[in-house]
Design a protein around this nucleic acid. Sequence first.
DNA 1: CACAACTTAGTTGTGCACAATCAAAATGCC
DNA 2: GGCATTTTGATTGTGCACAACTAAGTTGTG
Lengths: 157, 157
Amino acid sequence: MTDQDHGETGSLLLDDQLCFGLYSASRAVTSLYRTLLEPLDLTYPQYLVMLALWEHDKQQVKELGAALNLDSGTLSPLLKRLEKAGLVRRDRQADDERSVRITLTEDGTALRSKAEQIPSHIGAAMGFDNKTLGRMRAAMDQLTASVNAYRESFSPA
Amino acid sequence: MTDQDHGETGSLLLDDQLCFGLYSASRAVTSLYRTLLEPLDLTYPQYLVMLALWEHDKQQVKELGAALNLDSGTLSPLLKRLEKAGLVRRDRQADDERSVRITLTEDGTALRSKAEQIPSHIGAAMGFDNKTLGRMRAAMDQLTASVNAYRESFSPA
DNA sequence: CACAACTTAGTTGTGCACAATCAAAATGCC
DNA sequence: GGCATTTTGATTGTGCACAACTAAGTTGTG
């Protein structure tokens, strides 16, 4: 029972440290977004979709999925909720009936002004300077790429 | 409309960078765990519970919740699934009938040997040296603490 | 003792994530 | 043209997360 100093069985804890830290941090950030987004009646994934649309309106579901790394199983019901909330429209394309183009409504476009105060709250909450934030973002991106590459080599899609 | 260089409206993208990176990295890591844990028939949150129990058997639901920052709404059904899989037992305490103590079964204890190869895969997948991993973990912990403190000051529980 | 306040789990309902499957439409190749 | 293949999105089912609520048990106080 005194195995917590060893490398072998103890590593079942130690190696998990970053993963669990990542998991906890991600949930904490989502939780803060939940508070900040409550007045806008948006969830964090819905907010991400709105960010993508505020940047480029009229994207296909496929394009949104590529931008956010989400598949249609997640996006389809999410987009229907945004439609029901009156923030977007979902139109089949005339030239390719398979694809659905997502367009901001007036309300959807207008919501952007309400969202503009959010980033400064997030920045203040994190409490890192911009240089550190940038380094962390780069590390996250590298981590995502490494992990995805490893997984794909493991379970060849 | 040429606001993407400014701090104000353009920051709707820039300030979100770390959050989105965190969100993506967390999902990527979970996805790798899904692959690695498939032979053990565990999800990542279930694996976290098992890690906690392998470290300290016979914990209350409350203690597991404190260790993993999960509430009973998440843990209760998860623990029932682990019980159904034959990995744990759930017993009301005689001295305090409110609390439920989670105990590893023989199968639950034995599963640990199958899990021991996982951390090295995770370490290889991340591709950072141990010092960097430690720094990132510390940064994640600080981030979680800052964000939670900010959120609590905002929505005083 | 009586009873309010608190603690501990469980339940319900909503909304992601994601695997697996399906259907419809477009494309490529003969 | 005819038909297999691919693309695009939707659907179904499972399992987290989490808010809100409930139920049961315990504790503290007069």
